[in-house]
Design a protein around this nucleic acid. Structure first.
Lengths: 205, 205
DNA sequence: GTCTATATCGGGATAGAC
DNA sequence: GTCTATCCCGATATAGAC
């Protein structure tokens, strides 16, 4: 830590993130990673030995980033509606800044589904605990007559899909970059509102 | 049409669909397409000249399939709630049978966004007309105080995302193929219910 | 640790026989 | 239309000098 400047290894990893996120595993080129990092191609191999290794590092990092917030917010001590608001707002902002991430993750999962479980251990995510939390809140705090699992997936869908589908939306509807930014901004309030409105319909009495 | 057996060109296109859908543009191999079609690699070049051409054909076909139903259902004479139900039910079934399609499309749009507009003309989709329809129904039939555009995107998100994220869901929650099938089946009723519940919250009175 | 040079292979594409 | 043979480039990876 005596040197605030990034090490070569870090620069390579950062470069690899940019390239893999934008191009995917098959589309990424070791040469492009090297160029992006401002180093020689062989150095990439020196630090990571082969393409699979560096992809693995990039993928784990991306996955951890996406999951960490989710886990933290839903395990926290807030009320359920507050969790939803916090989550959406955070995710829309985060994903707007990292638009390639979710599609990169989804593609990675199709290619290497086996790797996920080890990844969970590394980032200390327990899906059971997460679902238990949601179950408890949906059933006991709000007393709703709906499967917590569907709610959870709905929240993810409404947060993530519009970001992933950005090129689709922009082209179909001819949105400028400014307009789509505005659209995402609106979703920070529209989506929580939409979900909470929906949940009202499931109140038991 | 005197020959019910598929022509070589058709067999190649079918093979190309399977390979491109599963592997994406960069991951697909001309050799694999040839093998899958049971022909020689050169024949693929003979009919399509190069990789870009055959990808284009595959992509247009996929896009047309996904958009056609959307267009048809939302332009039809049903009530808005009926459209939502019909759409979700159709899409969940269709996407379950073609699980690679939506991710393939989303990736393709990132890679070649320019091609979309010409594609619209080919399949006679008019986004303006579609949104106009939705606008009319949301505002006048249902008298809702919400932006129709957000509703439209929400419907797409809730229909498409869970299918795209299938490996994520299955791995995180340990669902078997049977369980996830059951989950998708449930969504045919859960999602329309969820949306219609949400819309009730926007009724003006 | 960083570079140059090179080995090796695979994939897209073409030429040309049948 | 269909095949074999081949070209050629680009990409991963390694050897080895500095």
């Amino acid at each position: 830590m005596e040197n605030p400047v990034k090490t070569t290894e870090e620069r390579i990893l950062e470069a690899a993130k940019r390239v893999f996120h934008a191009k995917g595993y098959d589309g990424a080129r070791m040469q492009e990673i090297a160029d992006e990092a401002g180093v020689n191609k062989s150095l990439v191999h020196y630090y990571y030995r082969n393409k699979d290794n560096i992809f693995q590092a990039v993928f784990e990092d991306a996955f951890a980033q996406l999951i960490a917030a989710l886990n933290e917010i839903f395990i926290s001590e807030r009320t359920f509606p507050s969790k939803i608001e916090t989550f959406i707002s955070y995710y829309v902002t985060f994903l707007s800044k990292n638009p390639y991430l979710p599609l990169f993750i989804l593609n990675g999962l199709y290619e290497k589904p086996e790797q996920i479980k080890t990844m969970f251990e590394k980032i200390h995510l327990s899906p059971d605990h997460l679902m238990q939390q949601i179950h408890l809140q949906v059933k006991e705090e709000l007393n709703l007559d709906i499967d917590p699992f569907h709610i959870f997936i709905n929240i993810l869908a409404l947060s993530i899909f519009p970001v992933v589908a950005r090129p689709l939306i922009q082209t179909i509807f001819g949105f400028s970059n400014e307009q789509i930014g505005q659209f995402y901004e609106e979703r920070k309030t529209v989506v929580p509102e939409f979900i909470l409105n929906a949940l009202k319909g499931y109140e038991k009495r």
